[in-house]
Amino acid sequence: MTSIHGVHGGFDLIENQISHLPNSPWKSIIDLKKPLSQLSINLSSIFTRKVGNGETFSFWNDEWLGNTKLCLLFPRMYVLKTVKGCLISDRCHQLNGSCNFTWAWRRLVRDGLEMEQYRELLGLLVNFVPSSSQDSWICSLGNTLDFSVSSM
């Protein structure tokens, strides 16, 4: 899916871009985005990311830890980043059952709001530990929660 529809699975495409996608079962699912939104059903809320090794999802630009992108929750930290599109695996590494973080700041974090956001970010990440499994998607409509096109 990502090779055809991008890392966001096509959910981030605007309507005229969707019409140019190749015909496929996934394109049919994405095509439901507009009619479902008219019924107050958010298609992207049905599909959520399940982080495994973090090699697929963006640390800052994907909703993977809660319902908001980290770049929006921690804008001061995002501005300090040297690589805005880094993956979760670029920042979080499992070591002895816990997660170690590798940051790439343009400069040291300063006191005040920056330090406050940094501490909040670390607090949000305190229980996160990447696994050895691959990243995947969860579909809240199925019995197993694992996503497959055939289940749709």
Rank of each mutant, 00 (worst) to 15 (best):
M1H: 10
T2A: 06
T2Q: 13
S3C: 07
I4P: 01
H5C: 13
G6K: 10
V7N: 08
G9H: 11
G9Y: 09
G9T: 10
F11H: 11
F11W: 13
F11L: 11
D12W: 06
I14D: 07
I18C: 07
I18E: 12
L21W: 08
L21I: 04
P22S: 15
N23T: 10
P25S: 15
W26M: 07
K27N: 08
L32M: 15
L32I: 01
L32E: 12
L32W: 12
K33T: 14
Q38W: 08
L39P: 03
S40L: 08
I41C: 13
L43I: 12
S44L: 03
S45F: 10
S45Y: 11
S45K: 15
I46M: 09
F47Q: 05
T48S: 15
K50Y: 06
V51H: 08
G52E: 13
G54I: 08
T56N: 06
S58R: 14
F59A: 06
D62M: 06
L65M: 08
N67D: 15
K69H: 03
L70K: 09
C71I: 01
C71G: 00
L72T: 04
L73P: 01
L73Q: 10
L73A: 04
L73I: 01
P75T: 03
R76S: 06
R76D: 03
Y78T: 08
V79M: 05
L80M: 09
K81A: 14
K81P: 00
T82M: 13
T82C: 11
L87E: 07
L87G: 04
I88H: 02
S89P: 06
R91A: 11
R91L: 12
Q94K: 15
G97F: 13
S98N: 11
C99A: 09
N100H: 07
F101I: 13
T102N: 14
W103C: 02
R106D: 00
R106C: 05
R106I: 01
R107V: 02
R107M: 03
R107D: 04
V109G: 00
V109A: 00
V109R: 00
R110I: 02
E114T: 01
M115E: 14
E116D: 12
E116G: 00
Y118M: 06
R119F: 00
L122T: 01
G123V: 01
V126G: 00
N127W: 02
V129H: 06
P130D: 11
S131P: 02
S131Y: 05
S132T: 12
Q134P: 03
Q134N: 14
S136Q: 11
S136T: 15
S140V: 02
N143A: 12
N143S: 15
N143Q: 13
T144L: 12
L145S: 15
L145G: 07
D146R: 13
S148K: 09
V149C: 14
V149G: 04
S151R: 06
